[in-house]
Design a protein around this nucleic acid. Sequence first.
DNA 1: AAAGTCGGACTTTCAACAGG
DNA 2: CTGTTGAAAGTCCGACTTTC
Length: 695
Amino acid sequence: MSTAQEAPTSHYVPKSQRVLACILCQQRKVKCDRKFPCANCVKSRAQCVPATLLPRRPRRKIPERDLYDRLRKYEDLLRQNNIKFETDDHALLEDDRPINDEHVNNSEEVDEPSPATTVKSSASTNAKNFWHAMRERYPGSDNDSGTSHEEATEATILGAWDQLFSNDDHLIFGARQTTVDLSSLHPEPAQIFKYWQVFLDNVNPLFRVVHTPTMQARVIEAIGDLKSMSPAFEALMFSIYCIAVVSILAEDFTAHFGAAKLGQNELVAKYQFGCQQALLNCGFLRSSDRDCLTALFLYLISVSMSTDPRSLSSMLGLAIRIAQRMRIDTESACAEHGVFEGEMRRRLWWALVHLDTRVGQLADYKPQTFTPIWDTRLPLNVNDADLRPDMKEPPAVHPYPTEAIYIVVRGFVADFIMNTSLHLDFVAPRLKPIAKASQQSLEPGKGELDALENMVEEKFLRYCSEENPLQFLTIWETRGFLTKVRLLENYINPSSLPRNEASLDKGVLYASQMLQIDTRIMASPLTKPFHWTSPYNFPFPAYIALANELRRQPFRDDAQQIWEVMSDNCDIRLITTFKSKSAFFTLFSKVIMLAWWARQKSGQADDMPEPRIVSKMKQAMEASGEDTLPLIEPKDGLGLEDPMTGFGSDQYAQQSAPQYPMPGQMTFNMDMNFGWPAVDWGVAQSNAWPGGQFL
DNA sequence: AAAGTCGGACTTTCAACAGG
DNA sequence: CTGTTGAAAGTCCGACTTTC
């Protein structure tokens, strides 16, 4: 055994710092020199993946009663065969089983968490179960114990469905292609480790729907025999390949995978096809397997960047419905599955809610998932190493940031927003009575946001380190999100009426802050692993707010600063967000060009150099053959007065800005003729509160 | 012949327990 | 608290198979 060295991986730091043989050496059962990369991996040009220590299972205890039963059985066998033996009759002949010995007979089941000890179901919040109700209505209808009878009845019915509807999986992904040998679609073992590592680096920190230590063990086991993994696990593996490839930035792809036979897009398509087939294999529409739903979730994220948000939202509805059938939206149902499984279910539910909400915003749909009609509690602030499949007691929650800090803070913020009257006024006013009472006493809007901001800073962010990539992301994404909420609240909250210069200046302040925070996140090398999600977080509302203000007051004192802030952000965003000529880019560039055009056409002397963002827009538009002039030219001067201010009545604005029955009549003063279906300015278009826009 | 696979003996670790 | 126990986790030898 080698001496302890520093653990080489940052994902999962076990208590012990011992260094294990790398995964490939473990797999090959050969000596590993424990350098990373190790000699064997260097020799075979394989990706050297450090192994992580598996959480130790507690020793299996065979219940006393079971031991006695077995002993009796063997003694009987000895007697039957006339073999003499000595026995402590006193101990064995008496049936001295403890009165309260409720151990199950099957010793294999001893390690299973006992629902009775782990469930603290709240009667008031627990939805009734039909089978349970039947049992209560007609007691004594059988000799079986209550729960098992209900389960048996339920299982019988479900089994009957299985037989009645043998194959309905083609509903979504088409018919299962029986000619496809899925095992041939898996990557090479060394590549599988690579994808796994990429997944751990780029994806899992943001969702934590995969438990690293147990999954790693399963991955190693599966690689040994790709043909015999369970269908649900195979779907999960494929979804990990999908999302891993998607999460690698295009410019890094060659560095990761060399000159592969297939390009990145082809590779994604291959694994997405494999994932679809694997999902069909496990009957994902009717499955209640968490691996299966996790696979569907990761698959949907992997297609999200290349799918119309409306289609994606529909597919997510499917996933949400499956999750609801599995009752992972119900705390007591999660708790029934024990500490480990329950926690993983909570993480999955929250991940689904976040994605559904975000995609719903893009698709101009208000998902009901982002309302307090379910009660799955927040994920715990614990490391994966603290969670073990066999644990009976919940792990101690850390006061300091753990691997789960991102999902914990995101969940905390979402949970708060979901219960604010500001949010419920927009999405479901009738739910206000069931929202958390503690938040109802706060003043809608500002009071609520102040309280949230203070709590988040006090409870989480002040413990986070800017040196740690995930914690850095957590700090700034949370602050950025809260600034975004303030920006939008500033425009839509009726209480801030009448609009005046002060409120508009606040809008400019919030929008500038939002862009600066986004620039900070995007510019930091620490967040690079997570840049693949950046298109989702494009600070479009900030650009719109600033551009509108610059159109209204092209020569305001801080105009140059505002252009600078936008240019700084654009320097980074232009590369990371806009891949090519797209409808979104067209829209975005028009917004910016209109603002610049307003200044140019004013006739005032202007010594401010052309902002970088404008130069870049022009270059990009010229390169794609687009006209750099605004699409619609105002007839009489410029649309300087913004309808959301209530100042003046600009002909251009009145003609082009759509009328929405909004609090504060908030519309952004820009023409809406760019053909962009339902963009992230949800506020302007859909009367939606953007609380959930926090992927 | 070199490289890869894997049965299984062996070592290490550490939770659980016993005893002071 | 310390020492002991023993199950589980981890290691890797060496026989065997596959590949080039």
